[in-house]
Simulated assay, not measured.
Amino acid sequence: MMDAYIENNPYKQSHFKKSESFRTLLTEQGIAARLGVSVTTVARYRKKGEIGYTMVGRRIRYTPQHLEDYLVRNEITPCAAPLNRQVSTSSANAEGRTTGARAGMIASRDRQSAHRSALAILGKPKSR
Results as ranks from 00 to 15, higher is better:
4 A>R: 13
4 A>Y: 09
6 I>L: 06
8 N>Y: 08
8 N>K: 14
10 P>N: 03
12 K>P: 00
12 K>D: 02
18 K>M: 12
19 S>R: 15
19 S>C: 08
20 E>G: 01
20 E>R: 01
23 R>Y: 09
24 T>S: 08
27 T>E: 12
27 T>F: 13
28 E>T: 15
31 I>F: 00
32 A>I: 14
35 L>S: 03
36 G>N: 07
38 S>K: 15
38 S>A: 14
39 V>F: 10
45 Y>H: 09
48 K>F: 06
48 K>C: 03
49 G>V: 06
50 E>I: 11
50 E>L: 15
51 I>T: 01
54 T>I: 15
55 M>V: 07
57 G>M: 05
58 R>E: 02
59 R>C: 00
59 R>E: 12
61 R>L: 13
61 R>C: 08
62 Y>L: 09
64 P>G: 04
65 Q>T: 14
69 D>Q: 03
70 Y>S: 02
71 L>I: 15
72 V>T: 10
74 N>Y: 03
75 E>F: 10
75 E>Q: 12
76 I>N: 01
79 C>F: 10
79 C>Y: 09
80 A>G: 02
84 N>C: 02
84 N>K: 08
89 T>V: 15
90 S>N: 12
92 A>P: 10
95 E>A: 02
98 T>V: 10
98 T>Q: 03
98 T>P: 00
99 T>M: 10
99 T>K: 08
100 G>M: 05
101 A>C: 03
102 R>K: 01
103 A>L: 13
108 S>Q: 13
109 R>I: 07
110 D>T: 04
111 R>Y: 11
111 R>H: 10
111 R>S: 04
112 Q>S: 04
113 S>V: 14
114 A>L: 12
114 A>F: 07
115 H>C: 04
116 R>W: 09
119 L>S: 05
119 L>T: 04
120 A>E: 15
121 I>Q: 02
121 I>K: 07
121 I>R: 03
122 L>G: 06
123 G>L: 07
126 K>P: 06
127 S>T: 14
127 S>A: 13
